[in-house]
């Protein structure tokens, strides 16, 4: 009986799998992280908050109040008036972004805080 899989097939399978995995890791590395999170509502910047300070941010969007929590250097949406709650299902993220499209909330974890001057 002939062997179904030849050695070349195995090489192909492993290299494809390996390549895909490497691609995934590479893509993950590409997502920018940072030490601060930038929150915008309706296209307007609400504030830039440092990740190392736990806090709750309330945002007033067209549909209602979206509540964002910054805790343990991660950001998550606690509650939002959108129909599908995709933003909440994202869970806690430490890099990248969370968007609640219906309520126009954009949360981006970015690089430095982009501060132009410090008061205090």
């Amino acid at each position: 009986m002939r062997k179904v899989l030849s050695i070349f097939d195995l090489v192909l399978i492993f290299s494809l799998t390996g390549g895909s995995l490497l691609g995934l890791i590479y893509m993950d590395r590409l997502i920018p992280g940072g030490d601060s999170v930038r929150i915008e509502v309706n296209g307007e910047l609400k504030g830039i908050y440092p990740l190392n300070e736990d806090r709750i941010v309330e945002l007033n969007g067209p549909l209602g109040k979206t509540i964002v929590e910054i805790r343990d250097k991660k950001v998550r949406v606690v509650d939002s008036p959108c129909p599908n709650k995709f933003c909440i299902h994202q869970g806690s993220v430490s890099k990248g972004s969370i968007i609640c499209l219906p309520n126009r909330v954009v949360i981006i974890i970015g690089g430095e805080q982009g501060i132009d001057a410090i008061t205090g």
Partner: peptide, 30 residues
């Protein structure tokens, strides 16, 4: 322009920010 508010209990000399906010045509003092 984005203005950072210094953390009131930050270490001397450090630039720890408590929060920051965008300002347009305004003056802020602490």
């Amino acid at each position: 322009w984005v203005i950072g508010i210094r953390h009131p209990r930050a270490e001397k000399g450090s630039d720890d920010i408590f929060t920051s906010l965008p300002l347009t045509d305004a003056a802020i003092s602490t």
